[in-house]
Simulated scan of single mutants.
Amino acid sequence: MPAPAPKPPLPKAELHVHIEGTLEPEAAFAFAGRNGVRLPYASEEELRRACSFTGLQSLLDLQQKLTVVLRTEEDFADLAAGYLDRARAQGVRHAEIFFDPQAHTSRGVPFATVIDGLTRVLDTAQETYGISTRLIMCFLRDESAASALAAFEAARPYLDRITAVGLDSAEAHHPPSKFADVYALARQAGLKCVAHAGEEGPAAYVWEALDILKVDRIDHGVSAMEDERLVARLAEEQVPLTLCPLSNVRLRVVEDLADHPLPAMLKAGLLVTVNSDDPAYFGGYVHDNFTAVRDALGLDEETLRALARNSFRAAFLDEPTREKYLREVAAY
């Protein structure tokens, strides 16, 4: 008698994934080959071994060496297709995807090349992969505020394809308040706002993201647990937090997954979600993160369902679509 088919993954939304962080070693070498770029690694295996990080900056240094292979519209389209194919196998029904235009325009790749390549695939993702998508344009916080403003102006002709703005890259010594002006422009343009805060930065950065940038979601937010008053506010206002557990371990935000504050956050009534961040570098996509926290933290099935429900509650969806996805979770 044949073995029963494995149960499909729990339906979920992914709200914190950097498209540049889905560049798998095989794809990096394939893009390098077709674009005539020489990578500083002899093989895919050597590149995988390089994914050993001492903190966020070491990840950013590695990504800078690899994003040079992304040159053409075809590259960005293939990158998006590769992510969506993996996401479908991980149970993702809706994905809100970060991209970093400054990382590409700064080396001569036109903004149009980046967004045309991505949206060529994202526009048909529902039909092709069964995944609805949103695109979030991030500003690099270790660049100047003027650079962020220039990036936003370059994006203006394409705002109909962009749902939100975000803030990523090296958090230390780059507070959210640095980007108050560009976030004000984004809100005036009708965009949603999110920001990385409380990953390697203090709880004070989460306050700034809420009060100065007026964000709709906090990306990471781990250090919020250091401030009882902030925890109470996040719980009362149900501000979503997009946690990335495997990332937190790889980047030494927590030393061991068993020490992750996720259970304490849930107990405090926070609206937390589980995501993959840069899965090609951290050894796991979103369902892998669900499985890892289940095993390391002893989470039961109902808690995992609650995390899946949270992901759709926190997503930038219209209400009928949100309810449809929540029914899928209930029926799982």
Rank of each mutant, 00 (worst) to 15 (best):
P8W: 03
L15S: 07
G21H: 11
L23P: 02
E24G: 01
E26R: 15
A27Q: 15
A28I: 08
A28P: 03
A30W: 04
F31H: 14
A32E: 08
G36C: 10
V37M: 13
L39M: 09
E46S: 13
L47C: 00
R49S: 13
S52G: 06
T54N: 13
G55Y: 06
L56E: 11
Q57L: 15
S58L: 01
L59R: 06
L62R: 13
T67S: 10
E73S: 12
F76T: 08
G82L: 10
G82N: 13
Y83D: 03
L84R: 05
R86V: 11
R88P: 00
R88V: 01
R88I: 07
V92G: 06
V92Q: 05
R93D: 02
R93P: 01
H94T: 11
H94D: 08
Q102L: 14
H104N: 07
S106R: 15
G108W: 08
P110Y: 00
F111K: 04
F111N: 06
L122H: 11
D123L: 03
D123E: 15
A125Q: 04
T128A: 15
T128W: 01
G130R: 12
R134L: 02
E143F: 15
L149I: 05
L149P: 00
A150H: 12
I162R: 06
D168H: 08
A170S: 15
A170I: 14
H173S: 15
H174G: 00
P175K: 11
P175C: 07
P175T: 08
K178W: 00
F179A: 09
A180I: 00
Y183H: 09
R187K: 14
A189E: 12
A189R: 10
G190V: 12
K192W: 12
H196V: 10
H196K: 10
V206T: 10
V206Q: 02
V206F: 02
L210P: 04
D211E: 15
I212D: 08
I218Q: 08
I218A: 03
H220G: 03
G221K: 04
V222L: 14
V222S: 01
M225S: 11
D227K: 09
E228N: 13
A232Q: 15
E237V: 12
V239D: 02
V239M: 14
P240N: 11
L241S: 03
T242W: 02
C244Q: 07
C244S: 14
L246K: 06
V249Q: 09
R250V: 04
V253D: 08
V253Y: 06
V253M: 13
A258N: 00
P261R: 12
L266V: 12
G269V: 02
T273A: 06
V274G: 03
N275P: 07
D277I: 07
D277L: 07
D278Y: 07
P279R: 08
P279Y: 03
Y281D: 03
Y285E: 12
H287T: 01
H287A: 13
N289A: 07
N289L: 01
T291Y: 02
V293A: 05
R294W: 00
R294C: 09
A296E: 07
L297V: 04
G298N: 10
R305Q: 11
A306V: 08
A306D: 12
L307V: 05
A308H: 10
R309P: 05
R309S: 05
S311Q: 06
E319L: 13
T321V: 12
R322M: 08
E323D: 14
Y325S: 08
Y332Q: 06
Y332F: 14
